[in-house]
Write a protein that binds this DNA or RNA. Sequence first.
DNA 1: TTGATATTTCGACTATATTGGAAATATGAA
DNA 2: TTCATATTTCCAATATAGTCGAAATATCAA
Lengths: 100, 100
Amino acid sequence: MKTTQAVGALSALAQETRLQIFRLLVRKGSLGMAAGDLSEHFSIPPATMSFHLKELSSAGLIISRRESRSIIYSANYDQMQELMGFLLENCCADNGGKCQ
Amino acid sequence: MKTTQAVGALSALAQETRLQIFRLLVRKGSLGMAAGDLSEHFSIPPATMSFHLKELSSAGLIISRRESRSIIYSANYDQMQELMGFLLENCCADNGGKCQ
DNA sequence: TTGATATTTCGACTATATTGGAAATATGAA
DNA sequence: TTCATATTTCCAATATAGTCGAAATATCAA
């Protein structure tokens, strides 16, 4: 993972509504949730929800699949794991590996 | 950890310069690094660096200590761990714990 | 087809974040 | 003291992000 990609993922999560959407999708697992249901669940207009889903999606944090007329979004755990690994990379390397 | 606090931490990291500062401090461990050295290392004016350090600091991601005329910043691993735990909380709970 | 439903794109407005020079504050050394 | 060094605060300019109504697009059912 490169810095630019990590900044993208962190920016996507650094917003109240989007963080809540993401955490709900993390709960839902592979079941995911339709854009409209998310819109209703958070009482957010479809246009606004669409904007947020696009942000999370471009950051690679969620993926989407079509099911009839609905679009189902679900969390992308791989991207999440990569992000976390990136944040703690080389932890304490310049202090002989000692974190305390 | 509450959503507001998590958004604060994520916002602090969601910026190219600050992410690089944080990752460097993660490497440095408890040794940390002086504000002025960080400023020089990234070729960023002291005022700008101070702004970024304050952001990371208010988010609880870094801590500071004074050593003579310098202020030494270092990563706060506890806050980082908490943030990560928060992001993956209740993972797949609504899908019987199955992530696939 | 036509109409109903689900979602996205467009565009204009408002709000928030970033930058850095100049001045202020804090520490230590002569 | 007085001066040099280290950092922060102030402030104004610039840049980026978030909101959502209206219109456009996609799917399905009759």
